[in-house]
């Protein structure tokens, strides 16, 4: 009895916080998405699916996100995998911890400043000037899809490296040795032993990067210059400029629904892969 009381007291503040600052706001979004827009913006209570029917009005943002998020995820995977493999199998334990910290740390630093660095690098006086100086003619890099994809890969690489690293680190070296002893060339050992065993890590990394990309705002805002915009940019516009809260709420609910669908697909995939869901330390 006393124990139960202690538990309740310990849980009460956090519970209240999550109820007021998370559950309640999410319920509000759901309710607002069924409402109507007020004459001066904001929200008028109603029960209609009109906002959802109107989603194609922001179709371009959905299209951009649904194309660039998977492409960005794939690029991050292609760059991250060899690095994760090298860290897990080719580096001594002493260096490994240090290098791992070096991979994680940028992820926790300001994505705003890190994207700004790319404005600086890809802007007129940066890489394009260098390319022109080398005699390849004038190119424009900033405010293009290329710039946005660069920012995406740069920002989310650590999140991709980590889960793959964890799955490869657990890999029993003796399996690779056995494969080599049986006469398999290195590439074949990799394709038939290491790669299949690392698939759970690959799936986790892709899922994490993809769902975070779905909600991205800063990178397209800074490197896409209004030409390459995501759902997140549409949301900022709807809430802070057009003040169309009901429609914005419907866009937000749709975004969360796509993310939930992704997570469900991931969980089903993991069950099939049979991999343990392994705790990935992002911190």
């Amino acid at each position: 009895m006393q124990r139960r009381l202690a538990t309740s007291v310990l849980l009460a503040p956090a519970g209240l916080w999550f109820a007021v600052m998370l559950v309640l706001p999410l319920c509000f979004v759901l309710v607002f998405s069924l409402g109507e827009r007020g004459a001066a913006g904001g929200y008028v209570p109603a029960f209609t699916f009109e906002q959802y029917a109107n989603l194609p009005a922001r179709g371009q943002a959905f299209l951009n996100t649904l194309i660039l998020a998977p492409v960005g995820t794939l690029l991050a995977l292609l760059i991250a995998y060899p690095l994760a493999y090298h860290l897990a199998q080719g580096v001594g334990p002493k260096w490994r911890t240090m290098l791992l910290i070096l991979v994680i740390v940028p992820f926790w630093t300001s994505i705003l400043i890190r994207s700004y660095a790319w404005i600086f690098l890809l802007g007129g006086q940066g890489v394009p000037a260098l390319i022109e100086w080398m005699g390849f003619g004038a190119v424009r890099l900033i405010n293009t899809r290329f710039a946005v994809l660069t920012g995406i890969v740069y920002g989310y690489l650590p999140l991709m490296v980590l889960p793959i690293y964890v799955s490869l680190e657990r890999l029993d070296r003796r399996l690779l040795e056995a494969s080599a002893d049986l006469g398999a060339p290195p590439l074949r050992s990799f394709l038939q032993v290491a790669l299949p065993l690392s698939l759970p890590g690959v799936a986790t990394g892709c899922m994490l990067v993809f769902i975070l990309l779905m909600g991205e705002f800063l990178i397209p805002a800074m490197l896409g210059g209004g030409k390459v915009f995501f759902i997140g940019n549409a949301l900022v516009d709807l809430f802070l400029q057009s003040r169309n809260w009901a429609f914005g709420a419907a866009v937000a609910v749709t975004l969360v629904a796509i993310m939930l669908g992704t997570v469900t697909f991931y969980l089903m995939l993991m069950r099939r892969l049979g991999g343990a869901r392994g705790n990935v330390d992002l911190i």
Binding site: P25, C27, M214, A252, L255
Partner: peptide, 13 residues
């Protein structure tokens, strides 16, 4: 849940 959705939800609530 992405920060942008949390931000919007918190604002309107």
């Amino acid at each position: 849940v992405p920060g942008i959705v949390i931000g919007i939800a918190t604002l309107i609530a």
